[in-house]
């Protein structure tokens, strides 16, 4: 009996087992081990020793932690305020264009093909004290703008990232806008709704789900940001761009304290898990469907 059911499933299992093993070895084991490491002092030479909650205590006592948390939240906030609405406005504008819609879409997407490292190289020059932006400001008689100063660094980053990413988000919105039935606009217009009213009551509700989805995706992505902070500013000046993840990677690959780094990762994991459980609960309470 067992043999026959095994035969029945043999192809299905044969095809699945390699992938199950890959997921186990390269995802699940690291995920579980990561939580384990946060209770150990990781030492490559003399082996790991269990230290209980010491890593957590040290991490929480680190004066850089509040800075990193604050910086991450500030970055997430401004990325929303500055960057989030632009693709929506752009998508609406592009779908209204009477011609050249195709080229506008392609041009908007172009920055997304730039590899991260090339992007940083380009923008290091744009933001340079003698780079094109400051030369332009000088030539029209304005004072130089220090993109690298403590107060400006976050905004410099967000402008760069918005420039790169908004095209692909805009294309997703364009697809969403195209799926809104045209009769709705027709009907709204007959009822006397002006252009703004049509955008407010037809267009935006029509892409509501997409907006929410991209909002969540952006929050997830910005909460884990560290690469551009590291490369453009090295976390500085004066820790102004030190994000939570940058702190974590520093612990691991600069100070080689993998235990403390794992403790930071575990804390973040717990925090994000709590948030997603909370949103799930709220959503369930929200709509009965």
């Amino acid at each position: 009996m067992a043999f026959r059911s095994l035969r029945r499933y043999s192809w299905g299992l044969l095809f699945l087992i390699p992938e199950i093993v890959i997921f186990l070895v390269f995802l699940w084991i690291p995920i579980v081990k990561g939580i384990g490491y946060s209770f150990y002092k990781v030492d490559f030479v003399s082996g790991n020793t269990f230290v209980g909650l010491r890593n957590f205590r040290e991490v929480l006592a680190n004066p850089d932690l509040p800075t990193a948390v604050k910086n991450t939240l500030v970055y997430m906030f401004w990325a929303l305020v500055i960057g989030f609405w632009i693709p929506i406005a752009m998508a609406v504008s592009v779908s209204e264009l009477k011609r050249f819609q195709g080229p506008a879409r392609i041009v908007g997407y172009l920055p997304s093909i730039i590899p991260a490292i090339v992007l940083y190289g380009m923008w290091q020059w744009f933001y340079d004290p003698v780079g094109p932006i400051n030369t332009f400001l000088n030539s029209v008689g304005l004072p130089e703008f220090d993109f690298y100063s403590k107060g400006h660094a976050v905004f410099s980053l967000i402008i760069m990232e918005t420039w790169q990413n908004f095209g692909s988000a805009a294309l997703i919105y364009v697809a969403g806008l195209a799926s809104i039935p045209k009769d709705l606009y027709e009907a709204a217009e007959l009822d006397g709704a002006g252009v703004w009213a049509r955008i407010r009551y037809v267009t935006l509700p029509g892409i509501k789900n997409l907006v929410l989805l991209l909002l969540v995706l952006q929050l997830i992505a910005t909460s884990q940001a560290f690469q551009s902070q590291m490369l453009m500013f090295g976390g500085g000046p004066d820790n102004a761009t030190l994000t939570y993840l940058l702190l974590m990677t520093r612990e691991a690959f600069v100070y080689f304290d993998f235990g403390r780094a794992s403790a930071l990762a575990t804390l973040m994991f717990l925090f994000l898990a709590a948030i997603s459980i909370l949103t799930l609960k709220l959503r369930r309470g929200d709509d009965p469907a």
Binding site: V25, F26, L27, I29, P30, I31, K33, G34, Y37, V42, Q224, L245, M248, T249, A252, F258, A261, S262, A265, T266, M268, F269, L272
Partner: peptide
């Protein structure tokens, strides 16, 4: 991000 470090150790 939460398994970046253990992934390296793994």
């Amino acid at each position: 991000a939460s398994y970046l470090i253990p992934n390296f150790l793994n």
